[in-house]
């Protein structure tokens, strides 16, 4: 069950995209996400789509896995498409164009999650938000908060499952509001206890908000190449 609840869809593949620095990958996703909404003609959209296909191929992601991850969004796409079809048929072309852009945006994010481990992403976020220190925001606090969330959400669901089983064994009926309330309150109580234990453990291990992750992220040959490639790509799309 925990396997299902674990965050991320990372699967190891020996690919260029996997080997790229996670900080760069996050920046690229952010930049291309903005760019997707700046392009407004068919040719540029086609170039962008071609770019995504190249990245997917380079990352060696299995297409069926990608489609599986996109599937939950298909209902939203169909809904938006139907809305255009019913209420503004004259803008149908624009609707399809918007849907396509959303699809590209989600695919870009999926490429990031498929090729980057959660821990590398957390480290990258910690390193990227370092300049926020000027605003007295501690990157360590944010990184640890994300880590704790990732660590404890599966545990919370496991707790919920155990509680549910224990209550069902005592003939609880989850159609009754008072029983739903009971399970939620018990779960909340357990989570607060866990939070209190964790807080003690962090204090005990000398939690220091000025510290940094010991992991070093270094740019390699492919990272520099990717910077050049992305720069040319953005230049072509924005200038021409």
């Amino acid at each position: 069950m925990l396997k299902k609840l674990s965050f991320g869809q990372y699967t190891y593949k020996n690919s260029i995209i996997h080997s790229l620095d996670s900080r760069l990958k996050i920046i690229y996703v952010l930049m291309t996400s903005i760019l997707i909404f700046l392009i407004d003609d068919f040719l540029k959209t086609a170039i962008f789509s071609f770019f995504i296909v190249i990245v997917v191929l380079l990352s060696k992601i299995e297409i069926k896995n990608l489609i599986k991850s996109l599937r939950p969004f298909f209902f939203i796409f169909i809904f938006i498409f139907l809305m255009y079809l019913i209420f503004s048929r004259n803008k149908l072309e624009q609707g399809i164009f918007t849907l396509w852009r959303f699809l590209m945006l989600i695919t870009m994010s999926l490429i990031l999650t498929f090729t980057t481990t959660i821990s590398n992403m957390v480290i990258a976020i910690e390193k990227l938000i370092k300049p926020l220190k000027i605003l007295k925001i501690k990157p360590r606090n944010i990184a640890v908060m994300i880590s704790i969330t990732i660590r404890f959400i599966p545990a919370m669901f496991l707790n919920l499952e155990r509680l549910k089983e224990a209550m069902l064994a005592r003939l609880v009926n989850f159609k009754k509001f008072k029983h739903i309330k009971l399970i939620m309150l018990t779960l909340l109580d357990r989570m607060f206890k866990s939070a209190s234990n964790l807080s003690n453990a962090m204090q005990s291990r000398l939690y220091n908000e000025n510290a940094e992750s010991h992991k070093i992220l270094k740019l390699g040959k492919y990272d520099y190449l990717s910077v050049a490639f992305i720069s040319i790509f953005i230049f072509v799309l924005v200038v021409y």
């Binding site: 964790l198 453990a201 291990r205 010991h214």
Partner: peptide, 21 residues
């Protein structure tokens, strides 16, 4: 179980050492 901050074993072991800078 509540003592571990990070999801990956080696990262969790490093947590206290990072705090010691």
């Amino acid at each position: 179980e509540d003592q571990m901050v990070h999801s990956i074993v080696e990262e969790d072991i490093a947590f206290g050492l990072e705090n010691l800078e």
